[in-house]
Amino acid sequence: MTLVAQVSDPVGDILGVQLLLGGGAVSASQWEPLRRMQARFQSPEALRLALERKRADGFRSVLALGEPRLLEALGRKHTDEMPLPLPLVPNLRGFMREAVEYGMVGAGVRRVWRGGVMSLVGLSLRGLTQLGPLKKKDFPTYLRMFIDLELAAFSRHDPPLVFLQPQMTDLAVAMNNPRIIEGFQAAVGDRTAAQIGLATANFGRLTSALKTWGIEVAAVIAPWDEGGSGMRPNVDACIRAAKACDFPIWADRLGHLEPPQPEDREMIRQAGLAGMVRDDFALWADV
């Protein structure tokens, strides 16, 4: 089975839950409907039932942040009744939220705790080989260990694909630093048998950078819509870049409150994209 067939629903889509978990920028007029929707899924149990419903609707996988509520809803091990989690790491916003409440050290400790004691043992053993870079505050090494810890919570789900969070991908692109991607690649290899994917807000520049660096990825998630919103550096460059790619691309729909329209589907089909990461209000209206 191909990767796309393994993770996509019948029209090629992956389920997104960032909107439910408080992500995504919305305008003031959307605050009330967003709050009402988020309030419905505050409990892990409500979230679990919603995910089960979406699995029954055909979604095979869900782009999953390492949020405690979502992890609890997903359960410790994957079952056929739930969409397969595709981790999106690191969960920077979740870390910052916990850092506000518990301090940076406290937030780190909570991640270790969630990963379990055995994950810490594995991390410590790997950390021994990285003492030099850690002492020098080497960013890619720190990132690798941070991701390693976060992935521990997903390891029993056997994810086939793990995505690097867009700010980290784009930091690597902006800084022209492939070591950031390589650190991610190493952490995924240490924890899982998954292939690596990258989420980005800068698709055109990312594909150029990957070619220059000689790094191969299994998939990319990037903004894509009929109006060209978020397609950087511009629509034409993104379409050209997509046609030259030999890996599947999913359209990032975070921030779109409406379900995809036929013209969105058509644009995606013409560009040769695999599908979309659906993350809109309409998904949850019937749950």
Binding site: P166, N202, S229, G230, N234
Partner: peptide, 20 residues
């Protein structure tokens, strides 16, 4: 009018959700 469709837009954004 949506920000994401109003010029000038950036050729690159490190934080599209917050003033990238």
């Amino acid at each position: 009018w949506l920000r994401s469709r109003t010029e000038p837009l950036a050729e690159f954004s490190l934080s599209p959700e917050y003033c990238g």
